[in-house]
Nucleic acid binder design. Structure first.
Length: 366
DNA sequence: AAATCGGGCAACCGCTCCTGG
DNA sequence: ACCAGGAGCGGTTGCCCGATT
């Protein structure tokens, strides 16, 4: 607990990285890989702590980073994902190839928050500002009275019946056993979940056929504040307020999602019982808007100054345009960039026949 | 031209989770 | 089962730079 061990060492440099330091770190990692981060600075000849090296690599030096401004589509996706995931920047970042959690977090705090406020939307709750304030007041009052209600447990029978209904939906081809685990977190509370969950179940006849009403990917997560409503629903589920993230695109001839995303990394439904269920979330990729689901085209801009030497690489269904030396030396961990190939297969083929109740009990075999 | 302000971004800090012994 | 160290995450800080006064 507490301070990282490597930070105890004295005379470690802090602050901005110099080009020389960058060069050393790049050279070391491209040659040997990072291995144990705490040993990287020593091996690379850097007066930095391992943590600092890791951060520098992940947020700035990694060859697969996409530099430059966020597109409108990316911003929209971030907003939508934030509505579902809350401040889980790393989870959000996994849906935006080439973007880092830090980058997304900064964008959110500096730009998107303002934009949402200008549109009259509360960035924390994703509801209209007036309603957000009102419900906040109400929540603070009710929490005084019923603070223990957040610990309501969801009866497993209810949970299973609901998820089973969800499973049968034909509009949910995005199930993916290669789940990205979503851990219950102290930061997981997104009041919006409460709101939309309640609003949704109040306005829909879920019991008749919930699966046809809301797409699976719009499932959200039980949070401390949403548990009481989740108990009613049997599961924490909520459509996002933007209403389009996970819709199948009726107009598209190339079987893409409405936002053009092929889909399907996953998140996990976290119930108050500690049961976790994985749900697929869309992976942003502008090239998919009409490129179909055959592959991912990803343009690397790290070395964009050298575009004249750019080449197209195609690995495992992913096309990467780059001019980075990292791609040439065989070091680059391509596997890390292909998490969605399974997904594409699933999209093209049949939805996996998942037994949610089994999954909820023990998870899928790997 | 200088001072001030504000936005954006890189990096740090502190915490939790994970993993191996 | 327990512990220690490493890894990862999210919140926060502080610097840099452009805009404004």
């Amino acid at each position: 607990m507490g301070r990282h061990t490597c930070c105890h060492k004295q005379k470690l440099r802090k602050g901005l990285w110099s080009p020389e330091e960058d060069e050393k770190l790049i050279k070391h990692i491209t040659t040997y890989g990072h291995g144990c981060w705490s040993s990287v600075p020593k091996l690379a000849g850097l007066q930095r702590c391992g943590k600092s090296c890791r951060l520098r690599w992940i947020n700035y030096l990694r060859p697969d980073l996409k530099r430059g401004a966020f597109s409108d589509q990316e911003e929209d996706l971030i907003i939508e994902l934030h509505a579902v995931l809350g401040n889980r920047w790393s989870q959000i970042a996994t849906r935006l190839p080439g973007r880092t959690d830090n980058e997304i977090k900064n964008l959110w705090n500096s730009c998107i928050k303002k934009k949402l406020k200008q549109r009259g939307i509360d960035p924390n709750t994703h509801k209209p500002l007036a309603e957000a304030e009102a419900s906040e007041d109400q929540a603070s009052k009710s929490s005084e009275r019923t603070s223990s209600s957040c610990d309501l447990k969801v009866p497993i029978a209810t949970l299973e019946s609901t998820t089973d209904a969800v499973r049968t939906s034909s509009s949910m081809p995005m199930l993916d056993k290669h789940a990205v685990e979503r851990k219950p977190s102290k930061n997981s509370a997104t009041p919006m979940n409460c709101f939309f969950l309640g609003q949704f179940f109040a306005s829909q006849d879920v019991s008749s056929d919930p699966a046809t009403i809301f797409p699976l990917a719009e499932l959200s997560f039980a949070t401390d504040c949403s548990r009481s409503q989740a108990a009613t629903a049997g599961l924490s589920v909520c459509p996002n307020p933007y209403g389009r993230l996970f819709e199948m695109n009726q107009d598209s001839s190339c079987n893409t999602l409405s936002t053009g995303f092929p889909s399907t990394p996953t998140a996990v439904i976290s119930t108050s019982m500690g049961v976790r269920t994985n749900i697929n979330l869309p992976l942003y990729n502008p090239a998919h808007v009409c490129a179909g689901i055959d592959g991912i085209r990803y343009s690397d801009a790290v070395y964009s100054s050298n575009t004249s030497q750019s080449s197209i690489s195609s690995v495992g269904g992913i096309e990467m345009q780059n001019s980075s030396p990292f791609f040439d030396n065989g070091f680059f961990p391509w596997s890390e960039l292909t998490p969605d190939t399974d997904t594409q297969v699933q999209l093209e083929g049949e939805p996996e026949d998942l037994k949610w109740s089994e999954y909820l009990e023990g998870g899928f075999p790997s």
